[in-house]
Amino acid sequence: MQGVVKVNSALNMRSGPGSNYGVIGTLRNNDKVEIIKEVDGWYEIRFNGKVGSASKSYITIVN
């Protein structure tokens, strides 16, 4: 499943599904990500070869 980031500035990509996990990357508006699965309001995603988590509130699913 594919998604597109929708933010005003930037979205942190984290090492796990929650804001208490470390930041491993930064996503910008309109970045395209691969959604692997949903976990507690977060998506596990793949972006630029990295796997991490980002809040699903800022990612829109595209077909």
Rank of each mutant, 00 (worst) to 15 (best):
M1H: 10
M1Y: 10
M1F: 11
Q2G: 07
Q2K: 11
Q2W: 15
G3A: 07
G3W: 06
G3I: 05
G3L: 05
V4N: 03
V4I: 13
V4E: 05
V4Y: 07
V4W: 05
V5T: 03
V5Q: 01
V5I: 08
V5Y: 01
V5M: 04
K6I: 11
K6E: 06
K6G: 05
K6L: 08
K6M: 10
V7E: 03
V7Q: 03
V7T: 14
N8F: 10
N8M: 11
S9K: 14
S9W: 11
A10Q: 13
A10C: 15
A10E: 13
A10V: 15
L11K: 09
L11C: 14
L11R: 06
N12K: 14
N12F: 13
N12Q: 14
N12I: 14
N12P: 15
N12H: 14
M13W: 08
M13V: 15
M13S: 01
M13K: 01
R14Y: 15
R14E: 00
R14N: 03
S15E: 11
S15A: 13
S15D: 10
S15K: 09
G16S: 03
G16A: 03
G16Y: 02
P17V: 03
P17F: 05
G18S: 06
G18F: 01
G18R: 00
S19F: 15
S19K: 14
N20H: 14
N20A: 10
Y21G: 06
Y21K: 03
Y21I: 02
Y21A: 03
Y21M: 04
G22W: 08
G22P: 15
G22E: 15
G22M: 13
G22Y: 08
G22I: 12
V23T: 07
V23P: 05
I24P: 01
I24R: 03
I24K: 02
G25N: 05
G25C: 14
G25W: 06
G25D: 12
T26A: 07
T26Y: 10
T26E: 10
L27Q: 00
L27H: 00
L27V: 03
L27T: 00
R28V: 10
R28M: 12
R28P: 01
R28L: 11
N29A: 09
N29T: 07
N30Y: 08
D31S: 07
D31E: 07
K32D: 04
K32V: 15
K32G: 05
V33L: 04
V33F: 05
V33E: 01
V33R: 00
E34T: 11
E34K: 06
I35T: 01
I35V: 11
I35S: 01
I35M: 02
I35D: 00
I36A: 03
I36M: 10
K37R: 14
K37F: 09
K37G: 15
K37S: 14
K37W: 07
E38N: 03
E38K: 04
V39H: 11
V39E: 09
V39Q: 10
D40S: 09
D40N: 13
D40F: 09
D40H: 10
G41I: 04
G41L: 06
W42S: 01
Y43T: 00
Y43L: 06
Y43D: 00
E44N: 10
E44G: 03
E44F: 12
E44K: 08
E44D: 06
I45D: 00
I45C: 04
I45E: 00
I45Q: 00
R46H: 07
R46F: 11
R46Q: 08
F47L: 05
F47E: 00
N48K: 12
N48L: 10
N48P: 02
N48V: 05
K50H: 09
K50R: 12
V51S: 08
V51E: 07
G52D: 02
G52V: 04
G52F: 04
G52N: 02
S53M: 15
S53R: 05
S53I: 10
S53N: 14
S53G: 08
A54N: 02
A54G: 03
A54L: 10
S55F: 12
S55Y: 13
K56D: 03
S57F: 14
S57V: 13
S57E: 15
S57I: 14
S57H: 14
S57G: 11
Y58C: 14
Y58M: 09
Y58S: 11
Y58K: 08
Y58R: 07
Y58H: 13
Y58A: 12
I59S: 00
T60C: 14
T60P: 06
I61A: 06
I61K: 07
V62D: 09
N63A: 13
N63L: 12
N63S: 13
